[in-house]
């Protein structure tokens, strides 16, 4: 195990194939790819993907074994009547808990993991600047969140279709035929993309600020729960609109007759604001932070 001193320095003589410089956008994409590759290897990520593939079918089986129906959620009473009610019941019941947790596991860890391993000083001393690393990791976390929503949309929808394609009763009492119902189910799930990205930004802020994955992940889940509690309080409309949990329910308006899109539009504003504020705050904390122990 020698250091081959006779062959140092390394590679200085081989300048010919020097790299061409990439701008900040290119650099960000480089980091984005590296982070996605690292994520793909994580057991927790793979586990969540597997769970998302089989979970909905397990829910369908569970519902089939019951004669009663979930009464507390919209569409709950129709799960034995129409397969389309199943993805909608899952969405209505679980979105505001499950989706923040899913993004929290990745986004709440992707920065603080490097604090935990002490590897910031390793990756910050390569050819990528602080901005590129911050943005690249953010993009990777956001990509995972989008991917999971798309995956859940597909598996929940297919689980429902497998259970039956009868028309489903909408939130305006109207009967929605199978074709339109499919489109509404997909639109409802996709309408949760902005709020899950909002929680991604929040988890990133927690991860960067605390340098601790427990705070990054746990904090995101706790805050999601807090939003649920606060939303029960009686407050003016703008108060409800500020909460990041409210846009998860914007799809209600898709299913009424006639449909209304006000909450969805305002939800976009809310989520954009949360993403901007949390992202900016995280960056301001990170950009001039001292890496390593002060000595």
């Amino acid at each position: 195990m020698s250091l081959a001193a006779d062959r140092w320095p390394a590679f200085v003589e081989r300048e010919a194939t020097a790299r061409k410089p990439v701008g900040p956008v290119g650099g960000t994409l480089v980091v984005w790819r590296v982070e996605l590759l690292k994520l793909a290897g994580k057991i927790l990520v793979r586990g969540m993907i597997v769970l998302s593939l089989i979970g909905p079918f397990m829910v369908v089986e569970f519902l089939n074994l019951q004669s009663a129906t979930p009464g507390d959620t919209p569409f709950g009473q129709w799960v034995h009547t129409s397969g389309f009610a199943i993805p909608m019941t899952i969405l209505g019941f679980g979105a505001q808990w499950i989706l923040p947790a899913i993004t929290g596991v990745v986004a709440g860890d992707i920065y603080s993991a490097d604090d935990h391993f002490g590897t910031w000083k390793t990756i910050l001393t390569r050819s990528r600047g602080r901005g590129e690393l911050f943005a690249g990791k953010f993009l990777a976390a956001a990509t995972f969140a989008v991917f999971m929503v798309l995956l859940l949309t597909a598996t929940d929808l297919f689980a429902g279709l497998a259970a039956g394609r009868e028309p489903v009763v909408g939130l305006g009492g109207q009967l929605v035929p199978a074709g339109h119902a499919t489109w509404l189910v997909v639109a409802s799930y996709l309408s949760d993309l902005p709020p899950i990205l909002g929680f991604t930004a929040l988890a990133v802020l927690l991860s960067v600020a605390s340098r601790n994955s427990v705070v990054g992940i746990g904090g995101t889940v706790v805050i999601a729960v807090l939003f649920q509690i606060v939303t029960l309080a009686s407050m003016p409309e703008w108060g409800q609109q500020v909460l990041l949990s409210t846009p998860f329910m914007a799809w209600h308006g898709f299913w009424t007759s006639p449909a209304f899109y006000g909450p969805f539009g305002w939800g976009l504003v809310t989520c954009t604001a949360w993403i901007a504020v949390c992202g900016l705050a995280g960056w301001l904390i990170f950009r001039r932070r001292t890496i390593g122990a002060a000595s």
Binding site: L171, Q241, T256
Partner: peptide
């Protein structure tokens, strides 16, 4: 028997 509905609050 059980009516689930929603209206616009915005």
């Amino acid at each position: 028997y059980l009516i689930d509905g929603c209206f616009d609050t915005t």
